[in-house]
Nucleic acid binder design. Structure first.
Lengths: 219, 219, 219, 219
DNA sequence: AATGAATGAGTTTTCATTCAT
DNA sequence: TATGAATGAAAACTCATTCAT
């Protein structure tokens, strides 16, 4: 079955059938589309199995439980979003403009994931390690936003508000307009609306001016 | 209207064992505390039964299914909140100040109901009649806010923004600060922060001034 | 509450409200129509309650359990049938003709009670006293038929068959034609068919002749 | 018919855990013994599970509900009986003798299934698809008998009776002697009794003679 | 006595997880 | 390794019976 003579590149050849490459990712992706559509408890492992065309045993070989799978999906997604945000933010633009990028990327990410975050509020008493880890991931994400806001404060673009609270306010705004958006709503309009209200709300005179200039340029 | 023979106030000595007075409300209240703590699917009917010290059959006598109970709790709660908001809004104050009242009442309502709204995003394809009714309730609630904003626009306190979107933004802000609030956060501070950002964000110069005056008065 | 002075006619006057006369029978009758339509387990006490317009507590005052009620209905019914059969049989006719009367009365009785006898075969291991009593009632009923057959044997109208088995055969025939009768089937035709086959089957030459004569007379 | 590449007899090494061979039949058999002993509503799925030593989930994997299981048992049983009857009837014997075979096979089949047919008379108003199918099965069974009788009429062994009614009469006779048989009753005696009465009842002179000859031969 | 509300043991069914190829 | 069959603990709901007027 396996060539007995030589295996120069991978000296430590494992026994048995080698793992199908990329299978873990395939599962993860399939699970994401499922979890993004329905609530955690509405999703059945059979659905995931069907969506990604893999055997149930295989699923459990890669993820030891439904919860593990779910959190893996969440972490993966939030990680990707964080990476995107970090990229968006790692430029030389003035901080006030970065807010626009943040809002755009975030809303775009959740555009097709409106129901992505359920379950997070699991019964408090069984705050498992996983749930704690979720909080860590989440705050790593919001950290990116918060840091941007702090830089904006330092640059005099944003008033001296509590950046933690301001971050939650911004995230909440985005969730609100996305979760209950109307059929005709378009991404760019909602982005504009959110940025507009938020930056007027927390910006200084100069911060607001920067955003306004940028907007005019875009249009 | 009432026949003189059958006494209207004591219409007729009801026969059989009379219903335990207030039992329906007791169940509703117990269910609310349970549903507010855990996700719909984590809640078991036995929990509700235990919480309000009533027999399981009785539960089902008043609410024919778990879903019915859940929606009854939701509708009841949202109804109460709407009534509160309508009261808060039915004054002669300038519209800009009403926003403060709205935010205060709403945040106070959800302060102990952080996990109150789950499940609302049930799988879309089984949009049952109940779910549709939920949307009606929800929009009746947001209507109160939206009307206030429109009055504020008319009064020149708020810019000519899309009030539907502005409403979702405001609701989202409140949800955000409440859902992920820190341990030390106090209600009044979060109210102030939300009103501050929102009214600066959407207010006109005069609208902002009114809110600022009021705030100074409160302090 | 009770007149203290004199009660000449009913010296032992009971306390409290006197029982509603005829209530027991009303319940029994209502239960019969219900049980005749549906299987024991399909019938709910609430159905019975509704059918006879009596309170549930009252039902249980007269019959201590669903089983008791059911058996009371059965016994009552079978008793009435037995009485009818005894009347039908207590004439001076030749025995062979009595068979015709038996079949007619029995089929007429079950015509609207096609599903009357279910449950009789309760789980064998819980052969309660009630079930035993049922067997006694049932054999009292079949006894009437069997006696008639024995008289017919003695009279030379019926061959020397095992009358116990012949009785079951006759009862089985009747059940069969009634249970699976077609929509257009009329009582008299089925009676004729059953009597015809049965009497040819067990009758002697003279017995058959008697039945045939009678039939011609009827037509 | 079969592509040469995919081997027809071993079509393709089925993947995953192979179904336990004969499990469906094992369940069906276990369910039959249970349902044959107790009434539908007295039977609990746990009983079936225990009887065939299979997990509850497995039960539901093969039969999606209690009703489905029940009807599967019924259809299976009645099917087998029909096959037996068709075999018994598919000979060159004179029709009158076939009746004897029919009675023998049928009584033998029900000998240990005395309580097999309950529930069939479910509440009429909910004539589900399954119940309708039951009627089809049942009439397919009785059809075999009826056809035999018609052949017997054509052959001059049976009088010109209504064969539909005669069939129900015969089935009813068999049910009666079996359902209320005494402890000492033996199958052959009951078969003889039923055939005797029935064939005398419906037979012509020549039909009776044939049966009588056959009986003497058997003895 | 009569009534209808209240009760909870008991049943069907689901679905995450394990197991045999 | 990958697969799908097998499993059983857990959960919603029913309904005969009891209880408070």
């Amino acid at each position: 079955m396996s060539a007995p003579l030589s295996h120069p590149t991978f000296p430590r050849r494992r026994r048995g059938r080698p793992p199908t490459p990329g299978l873990r990712d395939r599962i993860l992706r399939a699970a994401e589309t499922i979890f993004a559509r329905r609530d955690y408890h509405e999703v059945q492992m059979d659905d995931v199995v069907e969506e990604c065309g893999v055997g149930k045993g295989t699923l459990y070989r890669y993820f030891p439980s439904k919860q593990h799978l779910f959190f893996a999906v969440m972490f993966d997604g939030i990680q990707r979003l964080r990476t995107e945000l970090e990229t968006a933010v790692g430029t030389e633009e003035p901080p006030a403009q970065k807010v626009h990028r943040i809002v755009h990327r975030t809303l775009a990410f959740f555009w097709d994931r409106r129901f992505f975050f359920s379950l997070i509020h699991r019964s408090e008493h069984k705050m498992t390690g996983e749930a704690r880890e979720w909080l860590r991931y989440r705050s790593a994400l919001s950290r990116v936003i918060r840091d941007t806001l702090e830089a904006a404060v330092a640059a005099g673009h944003v008033r001296a508000v509590d950046t933690r609270i301001a971050t939650e306010i911004l995230l909440g705004m985005m969730r609100g307009v996305n979760r209950y958006r109307a059929d005709g709503d378009r991404l760019d309009d909602l982005v504009a609306a959110v940025v507009d209200v938020f930056m007027r709300g927390v910006g200084t005179r100069s911060g607001r001016r920067i955003v306004a200039l940028k907007r005019r340029a875009r249009a």
